[in-house]
Design a protein around this nucleic acid. Structure first.
Length: 484
DNA sequence: TGAAATGTTGGGGCG
DNA sequence: ACGCCCCAACATTTC
């Protein structure tokens, strides 16, 4: 009889520390750790290019941390598992839970089929502090507003468990049929992704180092500093969290460790509540699985979005003529991330000033963001568009000029990403067309040639958006409460 | 996790 | 001294 082993499936938990599924597997004995790349993921959920790039490097680090014993496969998970079951004596399979609707469906099917084969499947809570089904209102319905969800739901519930240690003296098995990382072909064929490399250190170790740098140097300034993209007081942990290189439990408990610094505690609470927003997004996605493609408030179904591929492209390429918007879109393209404040500005611009469907913006972010995450991306776009749960009111329209003046007062962020207008003096940097022609010329700026004219009139497009919204209000009400 | 329009207040210049 | 105007600087309302 062959030696009995367990399988552990890595998915969005590419770490060794605080990995409950991996720990449980290792406690049973020898473990064959594996990761399956399924290229047949349903269309809209197919991993974006930047995520694939990140995954490549993350798997490389993980393989190293497992002493090379990470097994990689491409294909349908069931066929690959079945093939492994035919070659090894497997009784137990472990994984950590994912919450995307297509994942839940796939995992449920897998579990049923594997159980029929006599295999025990165990899944664990590893990427959320609170399971979505554990948090409910008094009426036993899901919360629809963040603050009561977080304060009454999460913070009154049993606190998140402490982080778990790495498996002790694990016995990992390397399968001879595992394929090399390069065979996953996660990297872009034309090599455009090389430019991302300068901006990130990927993997579990890097994630923890980044967290400690943030906790030591920045978190105390988080509450006031988080809105200023040039200051760098945000954690930039989101892609690490998204791939599970670090767990929310590890961050949550590390935060509790530093909150002894009295002056820092409002900032700690403010950062912790951002983890809360992440939880809320997953919570919404779990309870409202249509969130990625359907307006949470169904009255928005009648909203008159414009169709304008040219405008969409100008936005995507950071050529709108509004420096704060263009800086954000170029940061995204160059680095695979965008500062949170600027995400709101560019999203508001797309949805309100250009009146293009939020799903188009979500799709672009999905492709370009290293932290692309179905729950956060869907919930946040709906939030900005005004059609989401606890959304910004539709009439909250950001003005990219004043947002620049307020949150990038010395223009450092704009000058970094929109260098062709860097020589414009401050008062004009946020609205180049307002500069007198001699000032433009002295700065080497020729609108329409070196930098675009503003692609829309802010006041006019704002009014049109408000009018379009007004139309919705005149429709028969009440449908928005009959979702699902 | 807005912005713009509108309203209110209070100080200074001036007849 | 006083009222009047102007207009910042806030505050409130509306979208």
């Amino acid at each position: 009889m062959k030696q009995e082993i367990s399988l552990f499936l890595f998915r969005r938990d590419l770490r060794v520390l605080d990995n409950p599924g991996l720990l449980a597997a290792c406690q049973r004995g020898p473990v064959l750790p594996l990761c399956i790349l399924d290229e047949k993921t349903p269309g809209p959920y197919k991993m974006g290019e930047t995520s694939r790039w990140w995954l490549h490097h993350s798997l490389e680090k993980l393989a190293h941390d497992l002493d090379g014993a990470l097994n990689l496969y491409v294909g349908d998970p069931l066929s690959i598992l079945t093939e492994l079951l035919s070659r090894y004596n497997v009784r137990h399979i472990f994984w950590n839970r994912c919450y995307e609707p297509w994942r839940i469906e796939q995992d449920t099917t897998l579990k049923t089929i594997l159980k029929e084969k006599g295999i025990t499947v165990e899944s664990f809570q590893a990427s959320l502090l609170w399971e979505p089904w554990q948090i409910k209102t008094k009426e036993d319905t899901p919360y629809r507003v963040f603050t009561p969800y977080y304060k009454k739901g999460c913070l009154q519930a049993p606190p998140p468990r402490s982080p778990l240690p790495a498996p002790k003296a694990p016995h990992y098995i390397k399968d001879e049929k595992s394929i090399p990382l390069t065979s996953l072909q996660l990297r872009a064929k034309n090599g455009w992704d090389h430019k991302l490399e300068a901006h990130w250190l990927i993997g579990e170790k890097a994630a923890h180092e980044k967290m400690h740098l943030f906790l030591n140097n920045d978190v105390a300034h988080y509450k006031e500093g988080r809105d200023f993209p040039a200051l760098g007081h945000t954690s930039r942990l989101s892609p690490h969290l998204s791939f599970g290189e670090i767990s929310p439990h590890q961050i949550w408990h590390a935060l509790a460790g530093v909150s002894g610094l009295e002056e820092a505690s409002p900032s700690i609470a403010s950062f912790a509540s951002e983890l809360g927003w992440r939880e809320f997004s997953y919570y919404l996605l779990f309870h409202f699985p249509d969130l990625p493609h359907t307006n949470f408030q169904s009255k928005f179904d009648a909203f008159p979005w414009r169709a304008d591929t040219e405008a969409l492209q100008q936005w995507q390429q950071g050529q709108t003529g509004y420096p704060m918007v263009d800086a954000g879109m170029r940061e995204l393209w160059q680095t695979g991330t965008m500062h949170n404040r600027v995400r709101m500005v560019v999203a508001s611009f797309l949805v309100k000033n250009l009146r293009l469907d939020w799903r188009l913006g979500a799709a672009w972010f999905w492709d370009c963001l290293a932290d692309a995450d179905l729950a956060s991306n869907s919930a946040s776009w709906q939030w900005v568009a005004g059609c989401g749960a606890d959304a910004a009111p539709y009439f909250r329209i950001f003005n990219p000029v004043t947002q620049g003046q307020k949150f990038d007062p010395d223009g450092a962020y704009i000058r970094r990403f929109v260098p062709e207008i860097a020589a414009l003096p401050d008062p004009y940097l946020f609205a180049p067309w307002t500069a007198p022609i001699p000032v433009q010329r002295a700065a080497g700026v020729i609108l329409g040639q070196t930098y675009p004219h503003p692609m829309v009139d802010l006041a006019k497009s704002r009014d049109e958006a408000l009018k379009a919204f007004q139309l919705l209000k005149e429709l028969p009400m009440g449908l928005e409460n009959e979702l699902r």
